[in-house]
Structures are given as C-alpha cells and as structure tokens.
Design a protein around this nucleic acid. Structure first.
Lengths: 253, 253
DNA sequence: AACATGATTCGATAATATCGAATAACTTTG
DNA sequence: CAAAGTTATTCGATATTATCGAATCATGTT
C-alpha cells in the first residue's frame, strides 16, 4: 500500500462526506500536518479530482470524478444487461427497479429504473446502502459466504431505522432463508415506508456479481406472488445473458 | 506535484480510455516498470477506485469512482439551481437542455434535461465535449479570457466533424461575437446534425462558472428568437439565484 | 492598524516509493 | 502432456522522493 496514494484517496473520502473542507480541516481529519496535505491536495487539484473554491480557498470534489464515475457505468456489463430487463420488470410489477453491486460493506446502486407511473423520481444511481439493511445486500450476501462472514463479524450493524436488523444472528438466519427461495426481502429496514425484494445475478463463472430488486411503498407489502415471479425471471434472464448456465447458483464452500 | 499520486491518477485516466487493461498494458502506457504500477494499482484497488476482474486479472474502474461522481453532483450549487430553470427552458423551447462546467479544455455536462417530447434519450451527465467545438464551451470561454488564451494557444483544435472550428483566429473572432449578444452558437461542430446555443452563468462574485444551452437537430436551425430569449432569461435567472447582480458580467482584464 | 487564522512555500531529513530480479500462477504451443 | 512463454506478484537494496517543521504570504477580524 503506497502511503501517499492512500492518503490522497482518503482525502477524496473525507471530501465525499462533507460538501467542502478547508485545508486544515482535511489535515485535522487525517491527522496529518497541513503542509503534507497541501502537496496531496495540489496534485489532486491539477487533475481535476478536486477543486479549490476561488474565494473561500476551501476544497471540494472536482469534475474529473464525475467523468470517472460515468465511464465506470459504461464499462459495467452487468449494467448493460440489466437495463433492458429491468425496464420490463418495472412495467410488469409497476415498481421501481434497482440494480446494485457490492462495495465494501455497502451496496452501490448502478442502475435505477423509475416506477412506470411517470412520476418524477430522484435518480438513485451512485447512492450506497448498507448491505445488511437492504434486500439487494442480503440477496448478494447469501450467495457470497466470504463477504457475509465479514459483515457478520463486524463490530456493529448500524441501524438505519427501527426495523434494521442489528443482530448478527438474526441476519445470518435470514441469509439462510434467502438460499431457499433465491429472493431476499427488506421491510422498512433502510428507509421508513420503503420495502422491497431482490435476487442475485450471476456471471459466466457462476459468481454472484450483483443483485436486482424491486422497491415498493410498505403500504403495498407484502408484494404479490406475481412480482416475486417476475423478479426471479428477470434475475435469471440477466444471469443467462451474462453467461451463467443456471440460476440461482448455490454458493461453493 | 507528488509523483506517486500523479501516477495513480494517470492510471485512472488510462483506464477511463479503455474498458479494462492488464497490468502490463497500463505499465506500457505510462512507460513505467510493471512492479511500480502494481503497487499503485493495489492501493487503488483496496479503496475500490479500480477493481481487478477475478478471472482475467485485468483492471478496470471500480465502484468508488461512481460514488465520488455522484457526490460531486450533489455538492454543485450550479446544478441545484440549474435543474428547476432548465426544466422550464426545455418546456418553453421544446429542446433538450444541457448545463456544463469547464474541465481543462473540455466541457463536462453536469445536468441534462431531456427533450420534453418524452422520447427515450441517453442520459448525458458526465460526458465531455471539447470547449472549442461546443456552444457551451464558447459561451464560457468568451467570458474567461485566461482560459480562452490557453485554448487558442494550443497546438491544434481537434476536429470532431467537418464543421468544427480548427483555426484559432476564427475561434477568437467568434468569442468576440459572443460578448456582443451573450449567446454562443454551435452548428454541427461537435456532432453531425446536432446544433445549439448556449449562454454563460455567473456566480455571486460575477465569475463565469458554467454555461447552459439548448440542443436541437440541425434541421431546426436557425432557432427562433423566442428560443434565444428563453435561454438568455434562464441564464439570467440561474445567475441571479447564484447571487450574481447582473447578466451578463463583462470579463475583467 | 495590529492581530489572528489559514494557505502556501521552502529545504533538510529520512522515510518511502521505486525498480530489477526472482517467483508464482496461467495459457498457449509444440 | 510437457515445455515455453506470458503475466501478475513478491521481495529487498537503493536513492529518489515525500514528509514535516518553520517561515512566509495572503485574508479577514477585532
């Protein structure tokens, strides 16, 4: 691990958590001398990864990161395959559809198909949700024992709402249940009055690389079997397009 | 400029230009020994800025960059102000509306309001267009003499289409013309059969920080005066919301 | 106007990244 | 099926390079 690069990325990280920060604030958060941070910050700024506000002198993220993020989406085969099928899934179920991948202990949304009723909805691509608090996360963890073990061993499962599962034992039980049906559920666990179901997606080597799910208001809970079937079918179709021979693919080991 | 950080960002840059690259390909492009690149690549991968494909061993951008890009958009005040006004602008003109900021010698699109006719359109947020080939770029350059000088002094103005302005003198003339009306034009210069007009947006200190423009098929060219007026009004309104006392703000120096 | 705060520059120091060589994991070829 | 070639990865000596404290500069405040 290269120290200066590590620190530079950490700077991006703290800038991600706060709109904009002064040099000394960044230095404070990283517990480094200001002059050290200044060199890093300058290098990041030259490349447009961050930019300095012209009057206040404070730093914030720069346009280059947006470009990177955009290119990342284009390179994702999962996203390409997902977009057609999730459109159909949204139409059949009348719900919004989200696709996500695992990033550390969080699910990162890489595709969002809005509810087909045409109402204006926030684009959710790029947001992250804790794995343990989302159907997408649970669907993925159930088929990724190594990651599940890491999450279960964590100090705490942060509560997003009163319904969030915070006991490792309970989460483990639920992951086992997911394996039986191939579908994970989430009821008010990440956002109040928002629920949903999700299923894993596998690549050509049978590895669970992401999950697709439908989101619905909790007032519509539980979702009808037709929605469950449609979801399962969509996950199977996407997996097949990615080259997976079967669905679901039981976890090895 | 910190060498290792600079190199790390360069790696992100080459990964941006190619879906995925092997370690030795990256090393080749940067003209560095593979072992040096490996250390950098590992550090980037730990933070999710890039990820290694599990089977091929090749590297590609990672989910962390998407998150950064998303947060960047949220921190942009320009974007927040833009979204309401560009919606109205799109409705009044029947055209798609784009907002962009300057990144190096390119315009980066930070907001895209699709044409109101409801047709499915590619989201364009995150893409970049050479400044000299776009109305957005010309609108911005006209009010940013320092950046204009840099662009005009460049070795070449890359031709995107047959219509792209490639002579510095011609571009300079056009920038002067922009100052007279506050609006820049673009006719097939970036993309064939795509034309548009754009106007600069100013912040509280009167600095031109971005540009907003409407895009239309070249068959609709020239655009009616009503569209021009609507654009000017939108640019003025956005600037006012950002705290700018006047519009346009003539460039100082 | 003097002071305080924060950003930036500079230069000596030693910690750290670098690079070549060796190894390990695969793939392709004979 | 073996062997050669390719590619990623590890390791350790070396000197380049990042680091950090102090000094300077720019801003805004009392």
């Amino acid at each position: 691990m290269i120290q200066s690069v590590d620190r530079a990325i950490r700077i991006l990280g703290v800038l991600q958590g706060a709109r904009n920060l002064s040099l000394s604030e960044i230095a404070g958060k990283l517990e480094l001398p200001a002059s050290t941070v200044h060199g890093l910050v300058r290098t990041l700024a030259v490349h447009g990864m961050i930019e300095q506000e012209l009057d206040s002198g404070r730093y914030r993220l720069g346009p280059a990161v947006l470009r990177l993020g955009n290119v990342y989406l284009d390179t994702l085969e999962l996203r390409a395959r997902t977009s057609t099928w999730s459109e159909e899934l949204a139409r059949r179920t009348g719900c919004a559809v989200r696709t996500g991948v695992l990033m550390g202990n969080e699910i990162m949304i890489i595709h969002h198909e809005p509810r087909p009723d045409g109402s204006r909805q926030m684009p959710e691509v790029g947001i992250v949700i804790p794995v343990h608090a989302s159907a997408l996360g649970k669907a993925l963890l159930a088929y990724r024992p190594a990651d599940a073990a890491r999450v279960l061993a964590a100090d705490e499962l942060r509560a997003m709402t009163g319904e969030t599962i915070v006991e490792a034992a309970k989460l483990e039980k639920e992951l086992e249940a997911v394996l039986a049906t191939g579908v994970a559920t989430e009821c008010d666990e990440a956002v109040l009055s928002e629920s949903g179901i999700a299923a894993p997606v596998f690549d050509a080597a049978g590895r669970p690389i992401g999950a697709v799910g439908v989101v619905a208001p909790t007032t519509d809970w539980p979702l009808p079997d037709s929605t469950l079937d449609a979801l399962r079918e969509a996950a199977r179709n996407i997996s097949r397009e990615l080259g997976s021979a079967r669905w679901p693919v039981p976890p090895t080991s």
